[in-house]
């Protein structure tokens, strides 16, 4: 990581240019190279082609996730997410799916937990409609992980207005602000 970027200073917005490989130094995780934490935390961008005729199925699944989170707002907690963005776009006559997640853990570390969660919440239903997704994904975590890694496109620039701050820290700060504000109200 470039020395000029400090990890513990959230007051200074920071940008980071990332080498082509997606990492500065090769560090092996359990399933492959570990991608670095950037001012925009950890994350991935998975891009894959949607199987012919399955675009509507993929699109319709957003409603399922919406309902799942409404039913249990903490159902994705294990992923330590900040944001998820699901995008469909066309290249020629083909449609591609982009799954972009920004989160606080190195994905390699909690891979099996994520796969488990994908199964429970039905995110895998989206994946099975993508070309090249392993048919035996339920019993073959390494094949699932291989698909994700092969379709991951690392960023070459990431920026954070409040760099390296975790979602937990943000929530703690907001909680403190709420408590402080309630206290001031009561003192009036």
């Amino acid at each position: 990581m470039p020395k000029k970027i400090k990890q513990n200073d959230w007051t200074k917005p920071a940008a980071m240019a990332i080498p082509k490989e997606g990492y500065f130094e090769l560090e092996q995780g359990r399933y492959g190279p570990v991608f670095p934490k950037t001012p925009a935390c950890y994350g991935f961008t998975i891009i894959a082609k949607v199987k012919p005729g399955k675009v509507d199925t993929v699109r319709a699944y957003s409603k399922t996730i919406e309902d799942a989170v409404a039913g249990d707002p903490h159902c994705l907690a294990v992923l330590k997410l900040h944001y998820l963005r699901w995008v469909l776009f066309d290249i020629g006559k083909e449609t591609y799916f982009m799954y972009q997640g920004i989160f606080d853990t190195d994905f390699d570390k909690y891979t099996e937990d994520a796969v488990e969660l994908f199964s429970i919440t039905g995110i895998t239903t989206v994946f099975v409609n993508l070309e090249g997704f392993p048919e035996d994904w339920k019993t073959n975590t390494p094949a699932f992980v291989k698909f994700v890694r092969e379709h991951q496109r690392p960023s070459f620039l990431e920026y954070g207005e409040y760099p390296f701050v975790s979602a937990d820290e943000i929530k703690k700060a907001l909680k403190l602000k709420a408590a402080f504000s309630a206290m001031l109200d009561q003192m009036q």
Binding site: G29, R30, K109, E112, T141, P142, S166, D168
Partner: peptide, 20 residues
């Protein structure tokens, strides 16, 4: 080994940010 032992070693023992 990868799901049980390596996870424990890589994450539980050596993740500097375990439990924040």
């Amino acid at each position: 080994l990868i799901r049980q032992f390596e996870f424990a070693q890589n994450v539980w023992a050596n993740d500097r940010n375990f439990h924040e």
